[in-house]
Nucleic acid binder design. Structure first.
Length: 601
RNA sequence: GGGGACGUAGUUCAGCUGGUUAGAACGCAUGCCUGUCACGCAUGAGGUCGCGGGUUCGAGUCCCGUCGUCCCCGCCA
């Protein structure tokens, strides 16, 4: 079938643009065929571009050639349509279409390209296996939902650049081909042709570069930058992901927080969501106790309390002290099946002791009463501040030791907290307390500086080894390592960590003490970070910053739970790009040139 | 590395305790149709049931293995 040439014709309007006021205008539209309705001598074509759909009418008495063309047309063919905008008769107006009051009577139809039948319809509500969508990503992206997501992402980036520029931040690019600095995630490695046996690493983040830019006097830096981590993927984790990386010299935490909060305000204005500032500041320990998470969802109440069991009760049920109690308002009638499910959640999350009490008017109903007695159970429900009509959930860890003193070691206390967090979310889901369209921001602050790695028998930084301890904790670095708090903070939104950062170490002496505590020898430190340690010696200013998880933020703004929905060309959970089939084998010559040999498994 | 779910027509799915020729809807093709907008009507094409092996007279269905996709745990300073 012969194609038509576009020539020097230009679109006069987009497909979502025409209104009543355009009636009588001669227009030239171009787009894809969304649908064709062929009534014989009368043919309607829905012409689509990213702005919308316009109905094109073809009749032989207006243009026999245009009508003949329209008969050949199939979905996703690319057309140019020259014609006249006419008002639709009142009874044929389509209210569902923004352009539904008019239509374009075709004088000429240019067939610019044909198209194979797509493997799935180019519509928003078509549910198609993600595998197929990813294989034909170019068609998937043609759908208006994906168009919306990526265009919103663009506008968000634009807002971020404007906002940060306005606050004096300078966008500077840092290398993608850099050196491997292990500790933390696995690196993606890139072999060097000019230096056989040597490798670049793709950056897990521009952490060291941005600190060096502070040392260089760039004061305030930012970058919307790709980061790479060779770890297993999740719904909210990809091999390559995007951060808004921010760093400032002479930082005051609150100044940084304010800049970020205002950025969030402007970003969420893009979706018409008002944001309340300032955000709540939540100390890590409080977050863990109340919400059982360092990224709590604060959109509903449900706060756990650590409560003590009477010593004789500890003895009877062999549960470590303290346990945790959660008041669930108004759920005293919770069905047994729901409670069983919660118990399952608790156990699979690692809390092996689960109990509950229904607080009724003037009495308690609890399977624990038989073992502990009404009085002890009553003490627990009142510690949970439960009122009649409430349900109290109890969570604990069983202990093997006997006797009255069942203290809970720190790492086990964290297990219990994390289990309580799982149970809390499950309760919220079951009671339908999680409301979409509400935005609960919080800063989680005062993280511990270190956590003890049981397997390796050493402390490791909870954030990263360049995070500064709180100034008042400096003296206790070595003596009370576990108790030292970091000047680190996370930005949390609706139960997602959407950013994290810290005030950094700017003094070489403190940096060396930290390396020592985490078991990094002087030689290893020099080998990995020598260039950075050198830089610290030349007048590093106090500095700090944050990195925002851009994909997650955009996903939340788009109402998506999966960041693949806001990334143009994402990979599957096994790191495969289904469209271009990466990773792939390479030519033996390429390996030869790089001095690499593949060992067959 | 571990756990769970899924894999049948181009797409989304159904297919019972194993039984003759594997179905539906949408899509696609052809024809008819001058006011449709999920157009309608008629006719038709389209399947190595992910792959390999096993059990059985007989496997889409049962068993073992394998591959792929999704979710979760581990991991992600």
């Amino acid at each position: 079938m012969p194609f038509d040439l576009l020539g020097d014709r230009q679109r006069t309007h987009t497909c979502g643009e025409l209104r009543k006021s355009h009636a009588g205008a001669r227009v030239f539209l171009a787009g894809w065929v969304a649908r064709r309705r062929d009534l014989g001598n009368l043919i309607f074509i829905d012409l689509r571009d990213h702005t919308g759909i316009t109905q094109v009418v073809c009749r032989p008495e207006m243009s026999a050639t245009a009508h003949a063309r329209a008969e050949e047309v199939r979905p996703e063919y690319v057309l140019g349509v020259e014609g006249e905008v006419v008002l639709r008769a009142p009874e044929t107006v389509n209210r569902q279409l923004a352009t539904g009051e008019v239509e374009v009577v075709a004088h000429t139809i240019l067939l610019l390209n044909e198209a194979k039948t797509p493997p799935f319809p180019i519509e928003d509500d078509s549910k198609t296996a993600e595998e197929t969508r990813l294989r034909y990503r170019y068609l998937d992206l043609r759908r208006s939902r994906m168009q919306h997501h990526l265009r919103l992402r663009h506008r968000a980036a634009w807002v971020a650049r404007q906002h940060l520029s306005a606050h004096g931040f300078v966008e500077i690019e840092t290398p993608f081909l850099t050196r491997s600095t292990p500790e933390g995630a696995r690196d993606y490695l890139v072999p060097s042709r000019l230096h056989p046996g040597h490798f670049y690493a793709l950056p897990q983040s521009p952490q060291l570069f941005k600190q060096i830019l502070m040392i260089s006097g760039f004061d305030r830096y930012f970058q919307i930058v790709r980061c790479f981590r060779d770890e297993d993927f999740r719904a909210d984790r990809q091999a390559e992901f995007t951060q808004v990386d921010i760093e400032m010299a002479f930082p005051q935490r609150e100044v940084l927080f304010d800049i970020i909060e205002r950025l969030m305000e402007q970003l969420f204005a893009l979706i018409g969501a008002p944001i309340a500032r300032p955000f709540q500041r939540l100390p890590y320990h409080e977050a863990m106790e109340k919400y059982g998470s360092d990224k709590p969802h604060l959109g509903f109440g449900l706060e756990w309390k650590r409560v003590s069991l009477p010593p004789e009760a500890q003895f009877k049920i062999q549960v470590a002290d303290p346990i945790k109690a959660l008041r669930v308002p108004g759920w005293s009638e919770a069905p047994r099946s729901q409670l069983d499910k919660l118990q399952e959640v608790a156990k699979s999350a690692g809390a092996d002791w689960f109990g509950y009490a229904r607080v009724l008017a003037g009495q308690l109903e609890s399977p624990l009463s038989k073992v502990l007695g009404d009085e002890a159970v009553g003490a627990l429900t009142s510690a949970a501040e439960a009122a009649p009509g409430d349900l109290v959930l109890l969570l604990g860890l069983k202990t093997a030791s006997s006797g009255p003193a069942f203290g809970l070691p720190v790492h086990l206390a964290r297990h219990l907290d994390e289990a309580s967090g799982e149970v809390r979310l499950e309760v919220a889901r079951r009671l339908n307390l999680i409301r979409p369209g509400t935005w609960n921001f919080a800063w989680v602050v005062d993280f511990p500086m270190f956590e003890f790695n049981q397997k390796e028998g050493r402390y490791q930084p909870m954030h990263h080894p360049f995070t500064s301890p709180r100034e008042e904790d400096l003296d206790r670095l070595e003596s009370d390592t576990a108790g030292v708090r970091a000047r680190a903070y996370d930005l949390v939104l609706n139960g997602s960590e959407i950013g994290g950062g810290s005030i950094r170490i700017h003094r070489p002496d403190i940096q060396h003490r930290i390396f020592k505590i985490i078991g990094l020898t002087e030689e290893k430190a020099r080998e990995r970070f020598g260039f950075f340690l050198d830089a610290l010696e030349y007048g590093a200013p106090p500095h700090g910053g944050i990195a925002l998880g851009w994909d997650r933020i955009i996903a939340l703004m788009c109402g998506e739970t999966n960041i693949r929905e806001v990334i143009a060309f994402p990979k599957t959970a096994s790191g495969v790009d289904l469209m271009c089939d990466a990773p792939s084998a390479v030519e033996p010559e390429q390996l030869e040139e790089l001095g690499l040999e593949i060992r067959r498994q």
